[in-house]
Design a protein around this nucleic acid. Sequence first.
DNA 1: ATGATATGAAAAATCGATTTTTTACTATGG
DNA 2: CCATAGTAAAAAATCGATTTTTCATATCAT
Lengths: 224, 224
Amino acid sequence: MGAEASTASTAASQLYVALKRDLINGRFTAGQKLAITTLKQHYQVGLSPLREALNRLAAYGLLEQENQRGFRVPALERAELDDIADLRSRFEGQALEQALENGGDEWEAGLLAAFHRLKRADEAPGQLDHWEQMHLQFHRHLLEPCGSPWLVRFIEQLHDQFDRYRRMAPANDTVRAILNEQHGRLVDLALERDITAARTLLEEHIRLSYEVAQSACHEEVAKA
Amino acid sequence: MGAEASTASTAASQLYVALKRDLINGRFTAGQKLAITTLKQHYQVGLSPLREALNRLAAYGLLEQENQRGFRVPALERAELDDIADLRSRFEGQALEQALENGGDEWEAGLLAAFHRLKRADEAPGQLDHWEQMHLQFHRHLLEPCGSPWLVRFIEQLHDQFDRYRRMAPANDTVRAILNEQHGRLVDLALERDITAARTLLEEHIRLSYEVAQSACHEEVAKA
DNA sequence: ATGATATGAAAAATCGATTTTTTACTATGG
DNA sequence: CCATAGTAAAAAATCGATTTTTCATATCAT
C-alpha cells in the first residue's frame, strides 16, 4: 500500500490536537471555566477520551486544573507574557547557536524548503491556520539540530504559550511584513553560519513578535 | 477550624503523586510496558482515575504513550542524561543569578530553614524518601525568587528527570558527603550574594551529581 | 519450509450509568 | 439586615461493562 501515517490515532489524541489548536487560537475566553458537558457535545465524543485530553493539556500548561472543580482556561497576564518572551529569547538564542554549529546539508535543504512553504502560505490569504502551521514548522526546523531534545521540547511549549497571546492580538500588516522579511534574512544568515548576527536577528524577531502580542493582555485601566 | 490543606484531592491526583514518586524512584524497570490491570490492583483504584494519572505523566515526560498500545517507562539513555544535566546546569545557573538579585529577607530565612531540615534529614538514616523531599525543597527554594515561573517549572521537570537516573545509581558515601557540604556552602554564598562564586558552585554541584547518575545508564558492552 | 492469512486471547480505549462533591438558592434565627 | 444552615440542582469524578484494536499462535496454500 501507499505511504500513510504510521500512528493509528485515538479519540483522546484527536481531541487533544483539536482542543490544543482551539485553545491557542483563542476560541475560548481566557479565564473561562470549561463546561465538560458542552465540550462533549461540541466535539462529539465520550467523557473518557475528553477527560484524558483535558488532563494532558493541563499537564502541558494550556489548561488549569483544580481538584473537584474541573478545568479552566488560563488568564492572559502581562507578567506571564514577559516571562515567556524572555525565556523564548534566551532558549532559542542558545539553540540557534548550537544548530548553526551542528546543522548539515540535509538541514540546509530542509530549511530552504520550510521557508519556501512559509512564503507560499503567506501569499494565500484566508488560510491562516495553514500559515500558522508552516510558521511553526519553519521555526522548529531552524532549531532542530541544536542537539538538545529537551531544549527543543521546552521551546515548543513556550512557543505554544506565546501564540495564545500573539493570535489574540490584532493583525498589523506593516509589522507582519517586517517579521516575514526577517524569516528570509534568518535563512541567509543561517546558511552563512553567521552565528552572532543570526542570534541577534532571532532575538529581535522574538522581541518584535512580543510587541505585537502585548496588546492581547488584559490592560489595567488607569485610574487618572 | 485549624489550618489544613486547602486542596481536596481526587483519586487521579493521589495516584499521580504516587506513580510519579515510584517512577522517579525506579520502582519500575526502564523500558518496561505498564500493565494497566496490574496497576489497577496494585494501587487499588478504578480505571478512569488511573488512566487520567497516566495521561498526565506522559504529558509531563515521565512516561511514553503510544496510541492503541498503552504506556511505557522511558529507557535510561546516556545521551539523554547528558542533555538533562547540561540544561540543568545552564537553567539553574541563570536562575540562581536572578534569585540572588531578587531574594529578600524572607527568602534568606526560608533558605536557612530548608537547609536545616535537609541536614536533619541527612542525620536520620533509613528515611531516604524524606531526605529526597527535603533535598528537592532546598533546591526549589534556592531558585524560587528568580522571577520566572516558567523557568522554575522547567527546572523542576528536569530535576525529576535527572533523579530517575540519580536514584538508580549506587550510593557513595564519599561523594555524598561532598554534595552535602556543597549545600552548606551554597547557602553561605547565597547570603553573601556572591553571584559568580555561587553560580560556579551550583554548576559544580550539578556536574558532580551527574558523575554519580551516569552509572545508572545502560552501558553498551565493548566488543573488544 | 515459507509467507500470508485467519483466529482467539489479551489489552487498550471508550461508553453509559452511578456516586460524590460543589454550587446556587432559600429559609431561618440572631 | 446579616449570617448561617439546610436543600436541591449541577457538575466533577469514578465505576463497571462494552467495544475496538493489538498481539501471539495456529492454519493453510504455495
